[in-house]
Write a protein that binds this DNA or RNA. Structure first.
Lengths: 231, 231
DNA sequence: AATCGTATTATGGCGTACCACACACTATCA
DNA sequence: TGATAGTGTGTGGTACGCCATAATACGATT
């Protein structure tokens, strides 16, 4: 028995990730942070060269991203980076609203101090990042705030859904957080969520989470319609 | 010109779907209706033979189903049909509850008679199928009931999410609908949703939809824990 | 005979080459 | 000038081959 344990302890940590997973992450990253722009064609053989992998891998990666909604396939034309229209974005925000509201209510009902502590840590991270004008930091701390909200009450499936939807609006997110006053209003709204959770106020937490997403949605709508009329 | 038209007239109608999509549907079908059982290994080369397509296609299909959550990949072992545990099933029902509740509320607020008519048609289809002991019919009419709920208020994204989650619990669904009294209780609960929508009672519709899913979840839990203890 | 090492097999991961087809563009010729 | 035939680009799909790993079977050694 102790031998087995020892073996486990010594075990060399292999990368474990397959080439395909690495490529998948790279391409998703590239789409999410704007290296590939919406509407760009994703030519298989070009991507083989850029990624340094075979077409087999590229094709599987493209299929995967297609099912995530990040890539669209034009018949007889091939894959492009999916375009996001206003209506779809609003729907995504709406869904996030109800799911995050649900998670917030569950957190409040759970009433565990660790949740509050973890949320406050993330929230402080957001404030610090805003102060340092570190926008990627804002996004990642915001993500971890919501991740806490879901995983602390063991809602991994819902968190997966939210994540899936969020990547599709990622470039919107990076625009909304740069909006005027968002550095004050955003954290203030999230603090209201935390307060309600601390007080065990389920309905208050639900409403605060919904409000926060609604605000983000409104900003996104303004940003997106402004961009549309500019083009 | 007339020559071109003539050519167009005799043009052979090829299926618009690619081979890959056909294979994807076939395999998903096979998993959903139990031809492949949870835990079964999905050996690539065997599937090539069974489907009559190349390994490339099979691999892309497996990747796609993996991202849908129907297939799991064991490291150094390969793909298997995903197992569903009780906790995950409960989470899926919970998410469906909030999303279907949301859609029901929106339908009630919209207050359009066509929605009520369409829902009643589906509901009658369910009742007829129950009467004829046509269980696949029950499932498909139930699906179209919810599809109406979502698409009549243009919530295609949410409908997509619900669909994605539903395939993962499909074999549970086919067990819950066979439960005692479900042929009476199920349609009764759905009728309550329709009634609330007809009366423009948003909160009532929300609650009725939540109740219906909650009932299904409870039955699924009973079924699943009974099966676990039996094995 | 029990055990330990080794060969074999099954299978996935990955790469390459190839053909067919659709589409867009272009140059050419009447 | 305008139709037409080429030409290039790119995906859909297939076949084959190689390598790494895990499991199993088999055989040798003590």
């Amino acid at each position: 028995m102790s031998g087995a344990l020892k073996d486990a302890a010594i075990r060399v940590e292999r990368p474990a990730k397959t080439l395909r997973e690495l490529a998948l992450d790279k391409v998703r990253e590239a789409i999410v942070n704007g290296y590939f722009r919406p509407g760009d064609r994703l030519v298989e053989r070009d991507m083989c060269a850029q990624l340094g992998v075979s077409r087999t891998i590229v094709r599987e990666v493209l299929r995967h991203l297609e099912s995530e909604g990040l890539v669209a396939n034009l018949p007889n034309k091939g894959p492009i980076v999916a375009q996001l229209d206003l209506d779809e974005a609003k729907q995504i925000y709406e869904i996030r609203g109800v799911l995050e509201g649900m998670a917030a209510r569950l957190c409040a009902q759970r009433g565990s101090p660790e949740i509050v502590t973890a949320l406050e840590t993330s929230l402080q991270g957001i404030r610090d990042s805003y102060r340092d004008k570190d926008m990627p930091g804002v996004l990642s701390h915001t993500s971890s705030f919501y991740q806490t909200l879901f995983t602390m009450v063991d809602r991994h499936v819902a968190w997966g859904v939210v994540n899936l939807l969020t990547v599709r609006i990622n470039h919107l997110r990076s625009m909304t957080i740069k909006t005027k006053n968002r550095d004050i209003e955003g954290p203030r709204q999230m603090a209201k969520i935390v307060d309600a959770i601390r007080n065990g106020d389920g309905e208050g937490a639900y409403k605060a989470a919904m409000d926060h997403v609604a605000a983000a949605s409104a900003i996104a709508e303004a940003v997106l319609s402004a961009k549309d009329s500019a083009e």
